[in-house]
Each structure stands twice: as structure tokens, then as C-alpha cells.
Design a protein around this nucleic acid. Sequence first.
DNA 1: AAGCGGATCGTCT
DNA 2: GACGATCCGCTTG
Length: 206
Amino acid sequence: MPLSKPRVPKSTRKAVLVPRKFYLDAPDQVAQKLLGKLLVRGEMTARIVEVEAYFGEADPASHSFAGKTARNAVLFGPPGHAYVYFIYGMYFCLNVSCEPDGLPGGVLFRALEPVYGLEAMAKARGVPVSKVAALTSGPGRLCQAFGVTRERDNGADFTSPKSDLQIRDDGFVAGQILVTPRIGITKDADRPARFVLAGNPFVSKR
DNA sequence: AAGCGGATCGTCT
DNA sequence: GACGATCCGCTTG
């Protein structure tokens, strides 16, 4: 199967805000549609290249599996909002809620390709900007690069023009998408729910 | 190149 | 009281 060449627009400045209805769908559908979109915070912009889908009732690996709590409430709310959780006593992970209000579901951002604001990302990560590959490749790393914390961002609306944290579409067309099992989980570890842009060097390492 | 353990704490049993 | 949707540095080969 030939690798279709992705179309890269000249400018991402005119990228349009992704509307709420985009997220009003099953997590695996939203996950695939998110590949190639842009995560934007202030001067920082990065392309989404690796994501994982987390379902509700039927998914033992999902944070929403055991029911609604204070921690995971955003997953049960309206689509298009940020679910941020603290993990391993040290890192944060960023998700976007999907499915209609009342139904749980989300997509975890696992890796981004930096586009603008690399200096700011490197500073937030505490690494030299020359280490581009380490800036946003990994769910903990990308949160650190974008300054994402639970206190600051949990519940944030990705679809609002007023929002500090947005997801935008610059017309980038994804090439081939690879599907694999999710990383770092023990329950339902074989389910194919990780989606990556084939051949993208910013996809996280195994 | 690959494998192992330490760091560190909110959340749920 | 145990365990993570992780990362990094140090060890060994």
C-alpha cells in the first residue's frame, strides 16, 4: 500500500477552531480524526501524531470504567473538554472528552510534533531546544512542554475562542494511520486503540 | 541497545 | 496501603 503524501499547508495561522460536534462521537473515531490537528496554547503550537482511545463501561483500562467520581467527572460531561489527571506522583496526562453529555469516553494525547514555540516548550521541559525529539513525544512530556496541570486545565473547553487551550485544523491531511494496542496498561492490553501517523518521527518510543 | 529501579502522591480499596 | 494511561538515568552486555 503506497504511502500517500500528506498535504502540508503553507501557514497554520489561519487554522480554524475544531467545533464541539467533532468530539460528539466514539473515542476511536475521534482519535483517528484528531491525528494531524493542532494543539495550541498561546505561542505554542504542535501537531497531534499519536493518540489512544479510552471507552466507558466496556473498557476496563479506562478511568471511567468504575463509574463517575470527582476525579474523572469531565469524562462523563459534554464533549470537547480537557480531562487532566496526575500519574506516578510526578506527571500529568491530557485527554479530550468525547461522546454526548452523560456518556463517558476520551482520547489521550500521547505525542505531538512541535510546530511553533519550540523555545518555550524546551524551557518548560528544562531541556535544550536542540533535543527536539524529547520535547513533546510522550504523554507526560507534552503536558510539561505545554504547561498542562490538573489545577490549571482540567475541564478546559478546547472548542472556545476564549480558551487558553485549543485544538485547530489547518487543513493538514493525514497519510497512512497505524493502529496498535495501547501503551502502559495491564487490563485489556491487547485491544487495538492506539493510533499513530505512520512514519512520523515524533511518535513516542516503545 | 536494552533492561531495571527510583522518584513521588492522588485516588480508591 | 497499594498502585498507576511515565520518564530518566544508570547499569550491563
